[in-house]
Design a protein around this nucleic acid. Sequence first.
DNA 1: CTGAAAGCGCTTACAG
DNA 2: CTGAAAGCGCTTACAG
Lengths: 338, 338
Amino acid sequence: LRPTVRDVARLAGVSHATVSRYLNRTSYVSAGAAAAIEAAVADTGYRPNRNARSLVNRRNRTVAFVVREKTDMFFADSTLSAQAVGANTTLSERDYQMLMLIVDSERSEQRIIELVAGGAADGAILLAMNDNDPIALALAESSTPIVVASTPVVAPSVPRVDTDNFAGTSEITALLRATGARPVGEIRGPAHAPVSAIRHDGFRSALGDEYDERLVVDAAEWSFTAGAAAMAELLRREPAVGGVVAASDLLAAGALETVHTAGLQVPHDVAIVGFDDSPWAARTRPPLTTVRQDPRRTGERLADLILQLIEGERLPDDYAEILPTEIVWRESAGPRPR
Amino acid sequence: LRPTVRDVARLAGVSHATVSRYLNRTSYVSAGAAAAIEAAVADTGYRPNRNARSLVNRRNRTVAFVVREKTDMFFADSTLSAQAVGANTTLSERDYQMLMLIVDSERSEQRIIELVAGGAADGAILLAMNDNDPIALALAESSTPIVVASTPVVAPSVPRVDTDNFAGTSEITALLRATGARPVGEIRGPAHAPVSAIRHDGFRSALGDEYDERLVVDAAEWSFTAGAAAMAELLRREPAVGGVVAASDLLAAGALETVHTAGLQVPHDVAIVGFDDSPWAARTRPPLTTVRQDPRRTGERLADLILQLIEGERLPDDYAEILPTEIVWRESAGPRPR
DNA sequence: CTGAAAGCGCTTACAG
DNA sequence: CTGAAAGCGCTTACAG
């Protein structure tokens, strides 16, 4: 049987209220009592019951970080990884524990809603949720503090943090165009991902009149293989395609492979650009021109915002932080224009 | 103010005990009461308080999955990722929620101990802990159910699951030797990682008399860059090195880079092998010969074992499951011997 | 500085 | 099938 605060109290010869006060430093306790309590705690191996404590405190200094598993390798994804580490670092510094929860089924969806709305966490950071996501909606409705990233607007009251996907894609598309590559096609992200639409809008906007929807191919998923397949389809539709904007580095890497296999040269025949500036992006052949984002910072901002909500501050409706991107020019798109 | 079981009871015209019984299906409730409760729950938006529930149940169907953050990209690591997904899948199927916790400081270490030992989780899966790890020791001492992987023995009572690192490395080393490559060096994993020593033992054992400690270089960390640096050091010590066993694919990839830069050919001048069969291992130039493990299965076994402990079953002392590996032969080590 | 008491929101014998 | 009561292990006014 696990020792409780009463066992410690008995051993120390004080009341359990005094033990609690000493352990939480909520008021001073005489030196004698303190020493006796210390000894009794050591003796019994006492550990406070977190559930009891959270029940009365209505708080447990814990924040859920919820991600949807897409595949086995779902977070062998440097962006997600950096976001998680960024959030964890900020939460940890403020002495909150981050609980990373993986959504892998409808049942797990309900479980996570019950857990978080039921007070097992003080709030939640939601990553890459879907349109009308059940988790996002249920938590918003139960007025659990939440913040989101890579997720469509849930409600005006839900703060968002995101990379400037539109500007990043539009900027790199414009630069690719400026290299003279023509025509320019797109390997769009998977249809299910909200971010795909935003990056696509950036692409389209940069192309203006030259935009040709025939040259836009959806990738089936965020994978090397899907990128390779999409590139093959693009070449089928337009063998003379001169430039390709891929919605991620991994898709771009797959595209590189297909282009090589087809006996074409990058960037001479086809210039290719990606998105993310993944850790290995400088090591593809040729090295990848891409859009750098700062996912660690995204995580830090998400953590900071959720802590603000948890600690009772208010943010304006439709609060959103859009973090800037930066173009990283490498050989896969030829010499940098201008 | 959040509605409680009493608010629901009042609205439904029954006692709160009946509400609890209905919600938990612990005993039958008259159809009328059931309907009234359903309506009252919907009306109030009632959600059971998990902390209160866990307090009385002494269980909350939750398992911690604890990992140590090594770097920003710490789990842009396909092995860890697959282990986490494997564990999550099994736990999720049995309706347990996995809580992934990242250790990033000594304070977080204490926080996690207090959380898990304090009953915020029913047990914990510990990954890649250190020798005499404070978390492992504290949890074992507080008799919280734990299982470990990639971790030195904590106590006889703590079950372990691991890839057969010794056999995998020894087998691939023997095959590399059989190709005729000579002399054979090793890019050992970082000194802090327990697995480094085991793989090294496999390497050494396969080499027998030919083992030369001068040809063993420690990588500073599990990174491409560290692999490249270690290879440079190895070439410095022995310019004629003919074969290299790297402790991971990422280290091997870095080594490939250094060898190319030095103007040498792989596998002609130097044959190189890795460990992990990472998703991209078939895409290095040349494709990497490596050791395949099944990290998803590792995760599933870990989950299964922790559930056994949580549900009160006993395992024999020193219980360990060592999962087999498989050699994946590709071009980086020349033609397969025999 | 400290103890007795009440209460956090549940679950579950115990009667009926 | 259902209610009144006790209790899970804490925290925190309230007195003293």
